[in-house]
Design a protein around this nucleic acid. Sequence first.
DNA 1: GCTCGGTTGATTGCATGCAATTCTCTTTGC
DNA 2: GCAAAGAGAATTGCATGCAATCAACCGAGC
Lengths: 242, 242
Amino acid sequence: MQSTELERVTLLLRQMIMAGEFVPGARIAEIPLASRLGVSRTPVRLALGILEQEGLLTSAPHKGFWVREITIDEIADAFDVRGALEALACRRAVERGLDVANRIVLEECLALGEALVAKGALTEADTRSWSEMNARFHEAIVAASRNIPLANALAFVGRLPLVSPGAIAFTQGLEAAFQNMQKVQAEHRDIVDALVNGQASRAAALVQEHAYKSREKLRRGLERLRGEQIVANVPGLKLVVG
Amino acid sequence: MQSTELERVTLLLRQMIMAGEFVPGARIAEIPLASRLGVSRTPVRLALGILEQEGLLTSAPHKGFWVREITIDEIADAFDVRGALEALACRRAVERGLDVANRIVLEECLALGEALVAKGALTEADTRSWSEMNARFHEAIVAASRNIPLANALAFVGRLPLVSPGAIAFTQGLEAAFQNMQKVQAEHRDIVDALVNGQASRAAALVQEHAYKSREKLRRGLERLRGEQIVANVPGLKLVVG
DNA sequence: GCTCGGTTGATTGCATGCAATTCTCTTTGC
DNA sequence: GCAAAGAGAATTGCATGCAATCAACCGAGC
């Protein structure tokens, strides 16, 4: 699938960073990384540049790259941005007329969510398919807006760890995850209802609140981990809590 | 100032693209470009990667880079995104309390705008200082929101040509530019008024409309140029009008 | 004992060589 | 005359060598 080393290295490196393999603020030297990944410095260097553009790394001339320190507040703020953009997407989707293809995707997502909620029990696999469904749901809304810069901007903010709709929900356990899932499913239902009935501002308000709830849920989850300077084992990235 | 070739090449290349030196859709080969800029392929390659991330170029493995074709609709859509984001910035700025530093910047921008409008006559230099003032104005609003992902997202959409507040207004002549300037100045006054009086939703609505007016002004300006497949001499980039 | 300066080591930045892929032009077959 | 296949040229992708810059450590001077 990936025809070049650069793509492979970029993907790998992104996963490594997101998995928290590097201490935030720590320098990432090219040579050890290259030998670790079994390639030369060239693709590594290019990949680092890409990840810098994505906001995961920082660099300075002759000083190299290091992992950006991301605060909880920054993650939370990104959710506000996501809410505002998705609200715009809803308004545009309604104004331009919700097309059939995306409507079908939305309803499929609703059905899948319904099935997961009805099933009651939750395995790890269920959580994964929920996440994928959630990602598809939000993508469909954006696609329905037919606004390319909007989609790009959303992808941009989604590059921050935990912000993308596909990020694994940050909950205490499967039980809490399930309760949250029920709430989210209800919100999804309302959003789709507003969209198919042409209620632009209602849909916009609902997704905005939807994002806000995600934000606060995440914040509560992260706040619990205060105390250590660096939050480890967060699915996504080590975060600076200072 | 720029200590590396990469920075120099990136800046130069961005300017060249924005100035429309390349036909949209045309391939950009590394070797001729490198020899033209007097450097080796390495920094050129890195710069091309950066500009791809910025949305000005596209690439495919083993096929190199080419200039992205940007439609008028895409530019217009980006204005909607800008409006939504700046509206969010206004709400947050008010909610968090407009800080003194940014308030001063806003009022200085107002004063400068007032002076330019009062002056009546408009030179090229006036247009430039107006643009710089406009950029500072919008930056201050974003800075006042103290939301870093928001600022990043706005910078992201602003990378599209003509979308950034600092882009030279697209008007028919100095006379029309002046009339537009008067309107914009009035809008700026209202926005600052809302911000300093803590009227969050009013300020949000005003900036959104502000962006919408910019969008429509630009669209009218570009529509006039339909007919040719490619619009040349647009300050920013050659645009595909199809 | 502390600070400032020099020197050494390491790392980044750039140039270039080589292999792999793609594109193009030509030639052959129908 | 046109289409398809093959060979050659050109370009990208990657590896590596070398120079410039930076950081750290050590020593000297105050």
